[in-house]
Amino acid sequence: MSKTDTPQEKLWHLIKDMKFAMFTHRHADGKLHAHPLTTQNRAIDEKGMLYFFVSKATELGQRVQADGNVGLSYGDPGKDTWVSITGTATVSEDRALKERLFNPMVKAWFPGGLEDPNLELIEVHIDHAEYWDIHESKMTQLLKMATAAVTGTPPTMGDHKELNMG
């Protein structure tokens, strides 16, 4: 993160190419459930929100209305970048926001477009984010792990930081 990057900009830099998040929420029976969802943002605004279209035919919107505490996980194994986000989810009825975010890929799931009776928008206010961003090659990582195994000193690889989204 450069000195000029805000936490939102750093977070967006990490997840912008990882379009899919595992969206974890609490089910009615108290257990955690996760769903793969497509992030609809083109950036993260100053409010620190992420957006997801979901179907009213599922219970996801009902679940976040009952308990808005959610977790989002993003991962890019090829780049060794991992992001964990906790936030508060709500169902948005903001028509202008839906219009701004709706795109042809969303239409594949909601053929009725913005008028589709199953279309629902969930917004997640980011409360906390943590990331692991490994810059070393796989060979260097293996060498560091082997050295750590011999020396008993855990390896240091890449960046691991928490972002204050306040």
Rank of each mutant, 00 (worst) to 15 (best):
Glu93Ile: 00
Leu32Asn: 01
His13Ser: 15
Met22Gln: 10
Ile15Cys: 09
Gln8Val: 13
Asp5Asn: 15
Phe53Glu: 09
His125Ala: 14
Met165His: 04
Lys16Leu: 04
Lys107Ile: 03
Ala57Ser: 04
Asn118Pro: 01
Met165Glu: 04
Asp29Gly: 02
Trp12Met: 15
Asp45Tyr: 06
Thr88Ala: 01
Gly166Asp: 12
Leu121Ala: 08
Thr151Tyr: 05
Ala43Asp: 15
Asp159Lys: 07
Gly30Cys: 06
Phe110Cys: 05
Pro7Tyr: 13
Gly78Pro: 12
Glu99Cys: 02
Ala34Trp: 03
Glu120Phe: 02
Lys47Arg: 06
Lys107Phe: 04
Arg95Ala: 03
His160Cys: 10
Lys19Met: 09
Thr58His: 08
Asp127Ile: 09
Glu123Tyr: 06
Lys79His: 15
Glu93Asn: 03
Ser55Pro: 08
Pro7Trp: 13
His135Asp: 02
Ser2Glu: 12
Thr39Trp: 01
Pro111His: 01
Thr39Asp: 02
Lys16Gly: 06
Asp127Arg: 07
Gly48Thr: 00
Met49Ile: 06
Ala96Gly: 08
Asn164Asp: 15
Glu9Gln: 15
Ile85Met: 08
Lys47Thr: 06
Thr39Pro: 02
Met157Val: 14
Asp5Cys: 09
His27Gln: 12
Ser92Phe: 09
Val150Asp: 00
Gly158Thr: 04
Ile134His: 05
Thr58Gly: 01
Pro111Gln: 12
Met22Asn: 10
Asp29Asn: 13
Trp132His: 08
His13Met: 14
Glu46Val: 04
Leu11Gly: 11
Gln65Trp: 07
Lys56Gly: 06
Ala28Leu: 03
Pro117Arg: 14
Gly61Gln: 07
Leu50Val: 06
Asp5Pro: 09
Ser84Trp: 06
Lys144Glu: 12
His125Met: 10
Val64Cys: 03
Gln8Lys: 15
Pro155Met: 03
Leu72Asn: 11
Leu32Pro: 00
Glu162Lys: 15
Lys31Trp: 11
Thr24Ala: 15
Thr90Cys: 07
His33Ile: 15
Arg100His: 10
Ile134Arg: 09
Phe110Thr: 07
Pro104Tyr: 02
Thr156Lys: 13
Asp80Met: 13
Leu50Pro: 00
Thr140Glu: 13
Ile126Gly: 14
Glu123Trp: 00
Val64Lys: 02
Gln62Gly: 12
Gly152Val: 07
Ala129Glu: 05
Leu163Thr: 06
Thr88Cys: 00
Ala148Ile: 02
Gly71Tyr: 05
Leu114Ala: 13
Leu142His: 09
Met49Leu: 05
Val83Asp: 10
Gly152Ser: 10
Gly71Lys: 11
Phe102Ser: 04
Met139Thr: 10
Pro155Gln: 08
Ile15Gln: 08
Leu119Pro: 07
Gly30Asp: 11
Leu11Trp: 06
Met1Leu: 06
Gly78Glu: 14
Gly61Ala: 00
Glu136Tyr: 01
Glu9Asn: 08
Leu50Cys: 04
Glu130Thr: 07
Lys98Gln: 14
Val54Arg: 08
Phe52Asn: 01
Trp132Gln: 09
Val91Lys: 09
Val64Trp: 00
Asp17Trp: 12
Leu72Val: 10
Ser73Tyr: 13
Lys98Asn: 04
Asp127Cys: 10
Tyr131Gln: 11
Met18Val: 12
Tyr131Lys: 08
Glu130Gly: 10
His125Gln: 14
Gln141Ala: 12
Asp80Arg: 13
Met165Ile: 05
Gly158Tyr: 00
Asp17Cys: 10
Phe110Gly: 01
Thr6Ser: 15
Lys10Gln: 12
Asp133Pro: 02
